[in-house]
Write a protein that binds this DNA or RNA. Structure first.
Lengths: 145, 145
DNA sequence: GATCTTGGTTCAATAAGATGAAATATCCAC
DNA sequence: GTGGATATTTCATCTTATTGAACCAAGATC
């Protein structure tokens, strides 16, 4: 198996993991994507979420309603600007899922533990390089739209 | 930036690339996923596609109709079993997109060219290890469903 | 070769989410 | 504090995709 093939396999493997998580949370792909954004980028205004998802304001209201009803996020009015509604991730809801992520972290830590400093530097360099390549092409693709 | 963070960044970067490709092809995420399956797994029966997508037969008929109308796939009746319809990717439709993928391949080749044999072995080992970790957790997640 | 099964399509009904306009509340500038 | 802009919600409508049942054609079984 050559490098490119291995890379695509990694890509689909991670995608399948995300899908499995979404299925477990009973979220469609779009809602799960929104939840990931909220989780990673901390409390953020509904409008920012709309921008990142490429959705209208009213669609995001409905989306956040769904996530809130499911108990995955909370709405907090921004004390600094009370028109704003900050969407904030609401803890770990699914104990099995927390276990999965914990194990994932543990196993990745173990994997990383196999390598010495120099090897880890190489791996990090490669990952960073790959990110740069994909970002470049994504930008081009968005531009030629 | 630590390793885990870098890994998730790679994941979202690749996901954003896929989204940009889908947008360019004017496909929704589900149809684009189907097209990727058809592209990677060669001509395959509609039923196999249905199984992989978790959709019913009639939904796949509609999906393949859309992809076919857009010119991305063709239907070929399986000569070995003329009930079967093989869905087959229909060449490169978007010249810009072919260019993007060509450049992506070129740049990844260049990136890989920076490393010696030993380093490449380390990188491949790490990627394989990561795939294994994610597959394990995906399986667990599907199981505890 | 009559019957049963399988693979796919068709079509009507349904469901889910997105859109766009109007409404509400808050902030900012003067 | 009046007027205007901004952030979000509500609601009716529209789009888009999925479901499930009926249907057709082609293989498999006896």
């Amino acid at each position: 198996m050559d490098g490119a093939e291995l890379g695509w396999e990694l890509s689909t493997t991670v995608a399948l993991f995300h899908e499995a998580v979404a299925r477990r949370l009973r979220l469609n792909a779009a809602d799960h994507k929104a939840l990931r954004i909220v989780t990673r980028q901390g409390p953020l205004p509904a409008g920012a979420l709309a921008a990142q998802l490429g959705l209208g304001a009213s669609a995001v209201t409905a989306l956040v309603d769904r996530l809130e009803r499911a108990g995955y996020v909370r709405r907090v009015t921004d004390p600094a600007d009370r028109r704003r509604v900050l969407v904030s991730a609401d803890g770990d809801q699914d104990p099995d899922l927390s276990g999965i992520f914990a194990d994932l972290g543990r196993e990745m830590t173990a994997l990383v533990g196999k390598y010495d400093e120099r090897e880890l530097a190489t791996i990090a360099d490669y990952v960073r390089g790959t990110i740069a390549v994909f970002e470049t092409q994504t930008t081009r693709l968005a531009g030629t739209g």
